[in-house]
Design a protein around this nucleic acid. Structure first.
Length: 579
RNA sequence: GCUCUGGUAGCAUAGUGGUUAUUGCACGUCAUUGGUAUGCGGGUUUGCUACAAUGAUGACGAGGUCGCGAGUUCAAAUCCCGCCCAGAGCUCCA
């Protein structure tokens, strides 16, 4: 049933009409806005003076079933614009939509009728509502009319439907499974991170397991960046007002920054970005074209104000560490540097089995004044990004108006193991900041020139990226990434001595290993290792001690007996290959 | 910030006005045990096979001003108000 997208769209769209029908019958004062089918199910936005709650949803579900029992046909009818305006004269939203359509050149308006209920809609729909056998209303939320925060807030109800009750139940079951993978749930279960009220919202503490995971990701980045001749620097978390004034952050980014801190006679701001500090380093010495490109990297912690409702587990926080770098180069080097960044991204995502990524190019919104710098520079920068993407054969879309205030950007969007898409990293070209800070280098002609900056963060932030990685792997991290790689389980205390020898040997080989010394049953300890998603459990008993072997059990339950040395070779190789 | 739903021990839960707030896991002590999680069934033997459900040896112990603060009441985890926090969604975004 899910396979035929076109059919499901019709199916859910028709269900949306059934919902609207039930809604208007229950609450006749409802003013309907729009109600499309979405990837899984449908929603309907409407204006109603009463805020609906969960009880109302139950009532509405019942009403929908009544509507469905009538088994009405969906009848399409095109009417003239004036007829449509008359038909929907009491509904300001439909009226606005009709006027929009007229502006786009439409001469007639399409409507659909089932029974007594009529809605403006271009379709297509099912022939009859009788095909819908099971419905469920999922949640209520607020949504802005036409998606604009400035517009009136409407109520939105999400729902889904299927042909049979069985399919509905299967879908609910599937949804539950996806929830099992949530970074919030797994973060708790695997003791990866915590968020504490007293510390503050949006400010996670990384627990040892999570910290290890993050350090491994960082290690991967550091090593790959060294291969591309990056340098690393470390900068402070706060800086004086003057710095952020010069950078333009106070003029363009202030609503994302926290209130200043008074220190002696001066005002300091928590840094929302690392760029001003990196630029300051660049400006320290006179630069020559021979120094460029200068690739400056920092795992830089920044603080940004996020509206309270936007915070979510590790995915959206208020203090986070970016895998930041700024590449200072000549205008001629921009394309080459851009290519190298994409090579880095491709390589790293490949290692993390996130091969299916695409790029969204954010360009300037011609009608907005929030940007700094000349239009010509923007055009050049945008052009260069697109050229590189085309040359590399990377999938991309252009999203006008999505640029940073200092330059166009390319956001990286990855698809995880469950097929969900996440925005992770970002690459931004910047012709503006070098200008504002009056950066220069001496060219081969002996003249002063202006360098170009590329801001880039392949992961975006360790917080968000780790959150995505948790969900992507469902907690079953590859061996090299696992906080605990091996758990040693002796069958009884009698074998503890050999177990300790094995532990020492593994520790010497830089393997993250724990020895379970608790006085619990073998079954309990095995179960515990499996629950913790530890890649390998080593069971050690009389046979193993005698033969200098270990009994190996992976987290899926597969077992084998192999020699200790053989195991060491195997695991070291596996870690090195990052499989 | 807005909408809805929630907040009971480390985690997960029961409890809608009436003694000392329920249960499981986790934690501690002791005991028991030990070969690949547990339960039940089957045969035959000490290792298999089939089915089913789910985070599991026993006893004891410890753990909670029921998110916070006012209010209603003889009596509040329970009803009312305010605030805080979380989740989902809108908007925004690394």
């Amino acid at each position: 049933m899910e396979k035929n997208e076109e059919y499901m769209e019709k199916f859910w769209h028709t269900t949306a009409h059934v919902f609207a029908n039930a809604l208007t019958e229950t609450f006749p004062t409802t003013k309907l806005a729009i109600g499309p089918a979405i990837e899984h199910g449908f929603y309907y936005d409407f204006d109603l003076d009463k805020n609906l709650d969960a009880k109302d949803l139950k009532v509405l579900e019942e009403k929908m079933r009544e509507v469905l029992k009538r088994k009405e046909s969906m009848i399409q009818k095109s009417v003239s614009v004036s007829e449509a305006l008359e038909l929907f004269k009491n509904n300001p939203y439909k009226t606005e939509l009709i006027n929009d359509l007229v502006e786009e050149g439409e001469k007639t308006i399409s409507t659909y009728t089932n029974g007594k209920f009529i809605d403006m809609c271009k379709g297509p729909h099912l022939e009859s509502t009788k095909e819908i056998g099971a419905i469920k209303l999922l949640k209520i939320s607020a949504a802005y009319w036409k998606g604009n925060e400035k517009n009136k807030q409407l109520q939105r109800v999400y729902g889904i439907s299927f042909k049979t009750q069985k399919e509905l139940e299967e879908w609910i079951e599937l949804r539950k499974k996806a929830e099992e993978n949530s970074n919030i749930k797994l973060g708790k279960e695997l003791d990866l991170y915590m968020i504490n009220d007293m510390v503050g919202r949006g400010l996670p503490i990384w627990c040892p397991n999570g910290a290890m995971l993050r350090m491994q990701l960082q290690d991967l980045l550091v090593k790959e960046q060294l291969k591309q001749e990056y340098s690393f620097i470390i900068t402070p978390h706060i800086g004086r007002t003057e710095l952020f004034k010069t950078s333009g952050h106070l003029a363009n980014y202030k609503e994302m920054m926290y209130a200043p801190i008074q220190i002696d006679e001066d005002e300091y701001y928590l840094k929302p970005m690392n760029c001003p500090f990196h630029i300051t380093y660049y400006a320290k010495d006179p630069r020559s074209y021979r120094d460029l490109p200068l690739r400056l990297s920092e795992m830089g912690t920044v603080y940004r104000y996020e509206k309270s409702g936007e915070l979510s587990g590790l995915l959206r926080v208020r203090g986070f560490t970016q895998d930041d770098a700024h590449i200072f180069c000549t205008p001629e080097q921009v394309k080459e540097e851009f290519k190298k960044v994409f090579d880095l991204v491709t390589k790293i995502m490949g290692i993390l089995k996130l091969k299916d990524f695409r790029v969204r190019v954010g360009t300037r919104d011609p009608n907005s004044s929030k940007y700094v710098g000349e239009e010509k520079m923007w055009e050049k920068a945008t052009q260069e990004i697109i050229e590189v993407l085309k040359e590399k054969g990377i999938n991309f879309v252009v999203n006008p108006g999505d640029a940073a205030f200092y330059g166009p950007k390319a956001d990286i969007i990855v698809k995880d193991a469950l097929g969900r898409e996440w925005q992770t990293g970002t690459i931004q070209l910047d012709y503006n900041l070098p200008e504002r800070f009056n950066l220069e280098y001496a060219g081969s002609d002996g003249q002063k020139h202006r360098p170009v900056m590329i801001h880039r963060a392949p992961f975006g932030s360790f917080e968000r990226f780790t959150g995505i990685i948790i969900e992507h792997f469902g907690g079953n991290f590859p061996l090299w990434l696992s906080p605990e790689q091996v758990r040693i389980i002796p069958i009884s205390e009698k074998f503890m001595e050999y177990a300790k020898q094995v532990k020492t040997k593994l520790l010497e080989a830089e393997i993250r290993v724990k020895l379970d010394e608790r006085n619990e049953t073998l079954g309990y300890k095995i179960r515990d290792a499996q629950k913790n998603k530890t890649p390998y459990a080593l069971i050690i008993g009389a046979k193993e001690v005698e033969n200098k072997t270990i009994s190996l059990r992976d987290r899926k339950g597969k077992q084998e007996t192999i020699g200790l040395e053989e195991f060491l070779d195997k695991i070291v190789k596996e870690i090195k290959e990052k499989n």
